[in-house]
C-alpha cells in the first residue's frame, strides 16, 4: 500500500513539474496565434477558438532582418570558435601545452563578466566606426564561445584513446594524416555538440548585442527587448518574434539533450 502511494505521489509530482515547465512556453505560443481582440482580456483565455497567423505575418514582414542578423552572427561565431577551439583543445588534450595554468585561465574566462569588456569594446569600436555592424557583435561573442569550445573539444579529444593515433603513425601515416583520418572522424559527434552549443550561446547573448548595435545590425534578443517600448501593447507580435527566436533553439536542444549537462558544466560532469 505504502509503496503504491509513493509511486502515485512521484507520478503526480512529475506531472506538476512537466506542467510548470511547459505552461510558459505554451502561453507564449498561444499568444502568438490569438487574434488581437482576444489578447489581454480579463479573464484570460487558456485556449483559442480562432487561431490566426496575423502576428506571424507581421514578424515575417517586419522582423526578418534581426533574424537574419542573428543567423549571420551566430553562424560566424560558431565557425570561428569551433575551428580555433579545436586546435587548442587538441594541443591541451594531447600535449599538455601550458601545463595546468593556461587551460584553466581559459576556463575562467567562461565567467568573465561581459559588462567589463563591453565598455572598452564600445569605445574602441566607436573609434573604428564598426558599431552597428555584425562584426561588432561577432567579436565579443568570441569571448564567450572560444573558451567554451576549447574546453569542450579538449574533453572530447581526451576521450579518444591515444593508442589509436599511435597505431596509425606506426603504420606510416603522417601526423596530419592521423588527425584527418583517425581523430577527426572519431571526434565528429563532439564537434557537432560543441558547434550547436556555441551557436546557442551566441544566439541567446544580449548585453554585447544591445550595446554594440543600434538599428541595422540588431540581433533577435535586442529586437525583442526593443519592441517593449516601441510597440506598447503589441503582445501578439512580440510573442511571435519571441517564438521565432525560440524554435531553432528548441530543435537544437533535442539533438543536444544527451550532452546538456556536459555542455553546461564545461565537461566537469559527463
Amino acid at each position: 500500500m505504502r509503496k503504491v502511494f509513493f509511486q502515485l505521489l512521484a507520478y503526480f509530482c512529475l506531472g506538476v513539474v512537466v506542467i510548470f515547465t511547459l505552461f510558459p512556453i505554451y502561453w507564449m505560443l498561444l499568444t502568438s496565434i490569438q487574434p488581437s481582440g482576444e489578447l489581454m482580456q480579463s479573464p484570460p483565455r487558456f485556449v483559442t477558438a480562432h487561431p490566426t497567423l496575423e502576428h506571424w505575418r507581421f514578424v515575417i514582414e517586419k522582423k526578418l532582418s534581426p533574424f537574419i542578423n542573428s543567423l549571420i552572427v551566430s553562424s560566424s561565431v560558431t565557425a570561428i570558435a569551433v575551428l580555433i577551439g579545436s586546435l587548442s583543445g587538441y594541443a591541451f588534450a594531447r600535449y599538455k601545452v601550458g601545463g595546468n595554468t593556461l587551460p584553466f585561465w581559459i576556463l575562467s574566462l567562461r565567467f568573465f563578466p561581459p559588462i567589463v569588456a563591453v565598455v572598452p569594446l564600445f569605445l574602441m569600436m566607436n573609434k573604428l566606426g564598426i558599431v552597428d555592424t555584425p562584426l561588432a557583435v561577432i567579436i565579443p561573442h568570441l569571448i564567450i564561445t572560444i573558451p567554451f569550445a576549447v574546453w569542450m573539444m579538449k574533453g572530447f579529444i581526451a576521450e579518444i584513446p591515444r593508442e589509436l593515433e599511435e597505431a596509425a603513425m606506426i603504420d606510416g601515416c603522417s601526423h596530419l594524416g592521423v588527425i584527418r583520418w583517425v581523430t577527426l572522424p572519431l571526434v565528429a559527434p563532439g564537434l557537432v555538440v560543441t558547434a550547436l552549443f556555441c551557436f546557442i550561446l551566441s544566439w541567446n547573448e544580449f548585453l554585447f548585442a544591445l550595446v554594440l548595435t543600434r538599428s541595422r545590425a540588431i540581433t533577435l534578443p535586442v529586437a525583442i527587448a526593443g519592441m517593449r517600448e516601441a510597440h506598447g501593447l503589441m503582445w501578439g507580435a512580440v510573442s511571435a518574434t519571441a517564438a521565432m527566436a525560440t524554435l531553432p533553439i528548441l530543435m537544437m536542444a533535442i539533438v543536444l539533450q544527451k550532452y546538456l549537462t556536459r555542455g553546461l558544466t564545461l565537461g566537469a560532469i559527463k
Binding site: V17, V18, T21, L22, P24, I25, W27, M28, I200, W203, N204, F206, L220, P221, V222, I224, A225, R228, V238, S239, A242, A245, T246, I249, L250, M252, A253, L256, Q257, L260, L264
Partner: peptide
C-alpha cells in the same frame, strides 16, 4: 524538464 535553460533569457523576461 531540461528545456527552459536553453531558451533565450530575453524571451524568458518577455514571457
Amino acid at each position: 524538464v531540461l528545456v527552459p535553460m536553453m531558451i533565450t533569457p530575453v524571451v524568458v523576461g518577455y514571457i
